[in-house]
C-alpha cells in the first residue's frame, strides 16, 4: 500500500489561493501552517496579516487572525501579545508594509524586544497595487513607478530593514532566506520555526525576511523570476542569519 509522504498541513485550508501563478506567498503560507502543526500551537496562535497581496492570508492559514491597517501589523500584534503573552502572535507583512509605511513600528518593536515572530516577504514591489517601487526595489529595476529603472538619488537605495533591526537591542533572531528553490524553502521553514520558538521562549523580537518571486509584476515567468532572485536580488540582499542572540541570552 502506498505511503503518503507529502500532504497539505492541517493549518492550511483546502482552497485555491488568489495569488498569481508561481507567487511565493503560497509556499510561505504552507511553511507557516506546517510550523504551526509541528509545534502544535494552532489553538493559541493569532496572526496579523498586512494590507497587501497577503491580506487574504486568513482565507488560507487556519488560525485566529486580526487585520491591521497598512503598516501597523506590528503595533496591532504588540497589543495582542502584551495582553495575552500566552498566545503565539505572528505578523505577515510585505516589503511596503514593513519597510516603508511600517518602518517605525518595526524598529520600535525590535527595540522594545516585543515577543513577536515577524514574517517579512520581500518581493521588491508593491504587488497588490500593480507593481510599484518598494523600498527593496533594486537599483536600476523597472517598476510602474520607476519606468526608467530605480535611480538611487531620486528613488533611494534598496533599504535593508533586517540589518537595521539587527542593531536594535531587543531583536534576538533575524534571518534572510528565499523560497525560490526546494533547498531554500526547507531552510526558510527552519528559520520560521526558530522565529516562533524565540517568541515561545520569551526571548524577544524575531524576524524572517523571505525573498520571494513576483512573476506577474516583474514580467518574468515563475521559473525566470526564481532564477532572478537567486542570481540578482541576493546580491543586494545576501542570505543567511543576520542576527542570532539566542546563545548569549540563555
Amino acid at each position: 500500500m502506498a505511503k503518503q509522504v507529502f500532504k497539505r498541513p492541517e493549518a492550511l485550508k483546502e482552497n485555491t489561493t488568489h495569488y498569481c501563478p508561481g507567487c511565493g506567498h503560497g509556499i510561505i503560507h504552507r511553511l507557516i501552517a506546517e510550523v504551526i502543526d509541528e509545534l502544535g500551537i494552532r489553538d493559541k496562535t493569532v496572526g496579523v496579516p498586512p494590507a497587501g497581496c497577503a491580506v487574504l492570508a486568513y482565507n488560507y492559514i487556519d488560525v485566529d487572525m486580526g487585520e491591521a491597517p497598512h503598516g501597523r501589523a506590528i503595533a496591532v500584534a504588540t497589543g495582542i501579545k502584551r495582553t495575552r503573552p500566552d498566545l503565539v502572535v505572528f505578523t505577515y507583512q510585505g516589503d511596503g508594509d514593513i519597510a516603508a509605511i511600517g518602518t517605525a513600528e518595526a524598529i520600535h518593536a525590535a527595540s522594545r524586544g516585543e515577543r513577536l515572530s515577524v514574517i517579512f516577504v520581500n518581493n521588491g514591489v508593491y504587488g497588490m497595487t500593480g507593481g510599484q517601487m518598494a523600498p527593496t526595489t533594486l537599483l536600476g529595476q523597472t517598476t510602474t513607478t520607476t519606468p526608467g529603472g530605480r535611480l538611487p538619488l531620486r528613488d533611494g537605495f534598496p533599504l535593508d530593514l533586517s540589518q537595521m533591526l539587527a542593531v536594535a537591542g531587543g531583536s534576538v533572531y533575524i534571518e534572510r532566506t528565499t523560497v525560490t528553490s526546494p533547498k531554500n524553502i526547507i531552510r526558510t521553514k527552519k528559520a520560521i520555526k526558530k522565529a516562533f520558538q524565540v517568541q515561545m521562549d520569551g526571548l524577544g523580537f524575531a524576524l524572517v525576511e523571505i525573498l520571494s518571486q513576483c512573476p506577474i509584476n516583474w514580467k518574468l515567468s515563475p521559473v525566470a523570476a526564481c532564477r532572478w532572485v537567486e542570481e540578482e536580488v541576493v546580491k543586494s540582499y545576501p542570505l543567511g542569519v543576520i542576527k542570532d542572540a539566542r546563545e548569549k541570552s540563555n
Binding site: 497539505r8 485555491t16 506567498h25 515563475p222
Partner: peptide
C-alpha cells in the same frame, strides 16, 4: 515542496 498552490501529493 516548491508548489506554491500545494497542489501535489
Amino acid at each position: 515542496i516548491i508548489c506554491p498552490d500545494i497542489a501535489i501529493e
